[in-house]
Measured scan of single mutants.
Amino acid sequence: ETWTVFRRYSRFREMHKTLKLKYAELAALEFPPKKLFGNKDERVIAERRSHLEKYLRDFFS
Protein backbone atom coordinates (compact mmCIF):
# COMPACT_ATOMS: atom_id res chain seq x y z
CA GLU A 1 0.00 0.00 0.00
CA THR A 2 1.28 3.47 -0.87
CA TRP A 3 0.34 6.79 0.68
CA THR A 4 1.11 10.26 -0.57
CA VAL A 5 1.46 12.98 2.03
CA PHE A 6 2.02 16.60 1.07
CA ARG A 7 3.86 18.27 3.95
CA ARG A 8 6.95 20.38 4.21
CA TYR A 9 10.13 18.79 5.49
CA SER A 10 10.02 21.15 8.48
CA ARG A 11 6.66 19.70 9.57
CA PHE A 12 8.06 16.16 9.58
CA ARG A 13 11.09 17.42 11.52
CA GLU A 14 8.78 19.11 14.04
CA MET A 15 6.75 15.89 14.38
CA HIS A 16 9.94 13.89 14.98
CA LYS A 17 11.15 16.29 17.69
CA THR A 18 7.76 16.30 19.43
CA LEU A 19 7.37 12.52 19.39
CA LYS A 20 10.97 12.01 20.51
CA LEU A 21 10.24 14.02 23.66
CA LYS A 22 7.28 11.81 24.49
CA TYR A 23 8.72 8.48 23.31
CA ALA A 24 12.45 8.26 24.06
CA GLU A 25 12.86 5.07 22.01
CA LEU A 26 12.22 7.10 18.85
CA ALA A 27 15.57 8.81 19.36
CA ALA A 28 17.11 5.71 17.78
CA LEU A 29 15.41 6.54 14.48
CA GLU A 30 17.68 8.58 12.24
CA PHE A 31 15.91 11.63 10.87
CA PRO A 32 17.27 12.97 7.55
CA PRO A 33 19.60 15.92 8.18
CA LYS A 34 18.70 19.44 7.15
CA LYS A 35 20.67 20.94 4.27
CA LEU A 36 21.59 24.60 4.43
CA PHE A 37 22.62 24.83 0.79
CA GLY A 38 21.23 23.13 -2.29
CA ASN A 39 17.85 22.37 -0.75
CA LYS A 40 16.14 23.45 -4.01
CA ASP A 41 18.33 21.14 -6.12
CA GLU A 42 16.33 18.22 -7.57
CA ARG A 43 19.04 15.72 -6.59
CA VAL A 44 19.05 16.96 -2.99
CA ILE A 45 15.25 16.86 -2.88
CA ALA A 46 15.17 13.28 -4.22
CA GLU A 47 17.80 12.18 -1.70
CA ARG A 48 15.93 13.81 1.18
CA ARG A 49 12.67 12.21 0.03
CA SER A 50 14.34 8.79 -0.06
CA HIS A 51 15.75 9.24 3.47
CA LEU A 52 12.41 10.51 4.74
CA GLU A 53 10.60 7.50 3.25
CA LYS A 54 13.04 5.18 5.02
CA TYR A 55 12.52 7.06 8.29
CA LEU A 56 8.73 6.70 7.96
CA ARG A 57 8.95 2.99 7.08
CA ASP A 58 11.10 2.43 10.17
CA PHE A 59 8.74 4.56 12.26
CA PHE A 60 5.65 2.54 11.29
CA SER A 61 7.31 -0.88 11.54
Results as ranks from 00 to 15, higher is better:
residue 27 A to L: 10
residue 36 L to R: 02
residue 60 F to E: 00
residue 6 F to C: 01
residue 5 V to W: 12
residue 54 K to I: 05
residue 16 H to E: 01
residue 8 R to A: 15
residue 11 R to F: 13
residue 8 R to E: 03
residue 23 Y to I: 10
residue 25 E to S: 06
residue 41 D to Q: 09
residue 39 N to G: 11
residue 30 E to Q: 11
residue 27 A to M: 14
residue 11 R to M: 15
residue 50 S to N: 11
residue 59 F to M: 06
residue 52 L to A: 07
residue 60 F to N: 03
residue 7 R to G: 13
residue 37 F to R: 05
residue 57 R to Q: 01
residue 17 K to M: 05
residue 21 L to M: 13
residue 11 R to H: 08
residue 24 A to M: 08
residue 5 V to P: 04
residue 10 S to W: 10
residue 20 K to E: 00
residue 20 K to R: 07
residue 9 Y to I: 13
residue 18 T to A: 13
residue 31 F to N: 01
residue 52 L to H: 08
residue 22 K to H: 01
residue 53 E to L: 15
residue 11 R to S: 12
residue 47 E to S: 12
residue 17 K to Q: 03
residue 23 Y to D: 01
residue 17 K to W: 01
residue 4 T to Q: 12
residue 45 I to C: 12
residue 5 V to Q: 09
residue 25 E to I: 05
residue 27 A to S: 09
residue 61 S to Y: 01
residue 36 L to E: 02
residue 17 K to F: 01
residue 52 L to R: 03
residue 4 T to P: 08
residue 7 R to V: 09
residue 49 R to M: 03
residue 3 W to E: 09
residue 32 P to E: 04
residue 32 P to H: 13
residue 28 A to R: 10
residue 2 T to I: 12
residue 25 E to N: 10
residue 50 S to L: 09
residue 8 R to T: 10
residue 37 F to C: 02
residue 41 D to M: 14
residue 13 R to S: 08
residue 6 F to T: 05
residue 30 E to Y: 15
residue 57 R to G: 05
residue 45 I to K: 14
residue 43 R to T: 10
residue 26 L to F: 13
residue 44 V to D: 14
residue 53 E to F: 14
residue 4 T to F: 08
residue 37 F to P: 02
residue 16 H to R: 09
residue 16 H to K: 11
residue 29 L to G: 06
residue 45 I to W: 15
residue 32 P to L: 15
residue 42 E to A: 10
residue 26 L to I: 09
residue 45 I to R: 12
residue 8 R to P: 09
residue 12 F to R: 00
residue 26 L to H: 00
residue 22 K to E: 01
residue 8 R to M: 14
residue 3 W to Y: 04
residue 4 T to D: 13
residue 49 R to L: 14
residue 6 F to V: 08
residue 7 R to S: 13
residue 56 L to P: 05
residue 13 R to G: 11
residue 44 V to I: 04
residue 61 S to P: 05
residue 9 Y to S: 11
residue 39 N to E: 04
residue 14 E to P: 02
residue 57 R to W: 03
residue 14 E to L: 04
residue 33 P to R: 08
residue 13 R to M: 08
residue 52 L to V: 11
residue 24 A to E: 07
residue 41 D to T: 08
residue 49 R to Y: 01
residue 13 R to E: 05
residue 50 S to W: 12
residue 1 E to L: 01
residue 29 L to E: 00
residue 3 W to M: 06
residue 27 A to P: 05
residue 52 L to K: 07
residue 31 F to K: 01
residue 52 L to C: 05
residue 22 K to D: 00
residue 8 R to N: 05
residue 16 H to F: 09
residue 12 F to W: 10
residue 49 R to P: 06
residue 51 H to N: 04
residue 27 A to D: 04
residue 19 L to S: 00
residue 21 L to P: 00
residue 47 E to L: 06
residue 35 K to S: 08
residue 25 E to T: 03
residue 30 E to N: 11
residue 45 I to N: 11
residue 41 D to I: 15
residue 52 L to N: 02
residue 43 R to A: 11
residue 46 A to N: 14
residue 7 R to Q: 13
residue 31 F to L: 04
residue 13 R to W: 07
residue 25 E to K: 08
residue 45 I to D: 11
residue 46 A to V: 09
residue 5 V to K: 15
residue 42 E to N: 15
residue 49 R to C: 14
residue 15 M to Y: 14
residue 44 V to A: 11
residue 9 Y to P: 12
residue 48 R to C: 08
residue 38 G to H: 08
residue 17 K to A: 05
residue 6 F to P: 06
residue 29 L to A: 13
residue 11 R to Q: 08
residue 18 T to H: 03
residue 10 S to F: 12
residue 54 K to T: 10
residue 22 K to T: 07
residue 11 R to K: 15
residue 56 L to Y: 06
residue 27 A to K: 14
residue 5 V to H: 01
residue 54 K to F: 02
residue 28 A to I: 05
residue 59 F to V: 08
residue 26 L to G: 02
residue 4 T to S: 12
residue 30 E to C: 15
residue 48 R to I: 12
residue 23 Y to G: 04
residue 15 M to W: 14
residue 10 S to P: 12
residue 34 K to V: 11
residue 29 L to C: 06
residue 26 L to T: 00
residue 29 L to M: 15
residue 8 R to L: 15
residue 42 E to F: 14
residue 29 L to Y: 05
residue 32 P to F: 15
residue 48 R to M: 13
residue 4 T to M: 09
residue 56 L to H: 00
residue 30 E to D: 12
residue 37 F to G: 05
residue 30 E to V: 15
residue 37 F to L: 06
residue 59 F to C: 04
residue 14 E to I: 00
residue 32 P to Y: 01
residue 36 L to W: 14
residue 8 R to F: 02
residue 7 R to H: 14
residue 39 N to M: 09
residue 24 A to P: 03
residue 43 R to I: 06
residue 22 K to S: 00
residue 28 A to K: 09
residue 55 Y to D: 02
residue 12 F to P: 06
residue 4 T to L: 05
residue 36 L to H: 01
residue 49 R to Q: 07
residue 48 R to D: 07
residue 47 E to D: 13
residue 53 E to K: 15
residue 20 K to W: 01
residue 27 A to R: 14
residue 22 K to R: 05
residue 61 S to Q: 12
residue 32 P to G: 09
residue 46 A to F: 06
residue 5 V to R: 09
residue 21 L to D: 12
residue 47 E to G: 14
residue 36 L to Y: 03
residue 42 E to Q: 09
residue 43 R to K: 10
residue 29 L to W: 14
residue 2 T to S: 03
residue 35 K to D: 01
residue 43 R to G: 14
residue 42 E to I: 11
residue 53 E to T: 15
residue 61 S to R: 13
residue 43 R to E: 06
residue 20 K to D: 00
residue 46 A to E: 11
residue 27 A to Y: 00
residue 14 E to N: 02
residue 41 D to K: 11
residue 35 K to M: 04
residue 3 W to I: 02
residue 10 S to R: 04
residue 2 T to R: 10
residue 20 K to Y: 00
residue 9 Y to C: 12
residue 38 G to E: 07
residue 55 Y to W: 14
residue 4 T to W: 11
residue 39 N to P: 08
residue 58 D to G: 11
residue 25 E to D: 01
residue 38 G to I: 05
residue 59 F to A: 02
residue 57 R to P: 09
residue 43 R to M: 05
residue 53 E to I: 14
residue 26 L to P: 02
residue 48 R to Q: 05
residue 38 G to A: 07
residue 58 D to Y: 15
residue 19 L to E: 00
residue 44 V to G: 13
residue 43 R to N: 13
residue 6 F to R: 02
residue 32 P to Q: 06
residue 12 F to G: 02
residue 33 P to A: 11
residue 9 Y to M: 13
residue 17 K to C: 03
residue 32 P to K: 14
residue 52 L to M: 08
residue 18 T to L: 06
residue 41 D to P: 07
residue 15 M to Q: 00
residue 59 F to E: 02
residue 49 R to D: 13
residue 26 L to Q: 00
residue 55 Y to F: 13
residue 17 K to L: 00
residue 30 E to G: 13
residue 53 E to C: 15
residue 23 Y to W: 13
residue 50 S to V: 04
residue 38 G to S: 06
residue 47 E to K: 10
residue 52 L to G: 08
residue 55 Y to P: 07
residue 50 S to E: 01
residue 8 R to W: 10
residue 45 I to A: 13
residue 15 M to F: 09
residue 25 E to G: 04
residue 5 V to A: 13
residue 60 F to P: 01
residue 54 K to H: 03
residue 18 T to Y: 15
residue 7 R to E: 05
residue 36 L to Q: 00
residue 60 F to Y: 06
residue 54 K to E: 05
residue 15 M to S: 00
residue 23 Y to A: 11
residue 38 G to R: 08
residue 18 T to K: 09
residue 9 Y to T: 07
residue 55 Y to M: 13
residue 32 P to A: 11
residue 35 K to P: 03
residue 23 Y to P: 00
residue 44 V to Y: 07
residue 48 R to H: 00
residue 58 D to R: 13
residue 35 K to C: 02
residue 22 K to W: 14
residue 49 R to F: 10
residue 26 L to M: 05
residue 59 F to N: 00
residue 23 Y to T: 04
residue 14 E to G: 07
residue 41 D to W: 15
residue 18 T to V: 10
residue 43 R to S: 14
residue 56 L to T: 10
residue 32 P to V: 14
residue 48 R to N: 10
residue 61 S to F: 00
residue 58 D to I: 10
residue 10 S to Q: 04
residue 3 W to R: 06
residue 19 L to R: 00
residue 33 P to L: 15
residue 38 G to F: 06
residue 49 R to G: 10
residue 22 K to P: 00
residue 5 V to L: 11
residue 19 L to T: 01
residue 37 F to V: 07
residue 46 A to Y: 06
residue 31 F to D: 00
residue 58 D to H: 12
residue 13 R to N: 06
residue 16 H to T: 13
residue 6 F to D: 03
residue 29 L to F: 07
residue 53 E to W: 15
residue 37 F to K: 07
residue 35 K to E: 01
residue 45 I to E: 12
residue 14 E to F: 04
residue 47 E to A: 05
residue 1 E to Y: 03
residue 44 V to T: 14
residue 12 F to A: 06
residue 14 E to D: 07
residue 20 K to P: 00
residue 11 R to P: 08
residue 8 R to Y: 11
residue 53 E to G: 15
residue 12 F to H: 01
residue 33 P to N: 00
residue 17 K to E: 05
residue 4 T to H: 04
residue 23 Y to R: 01
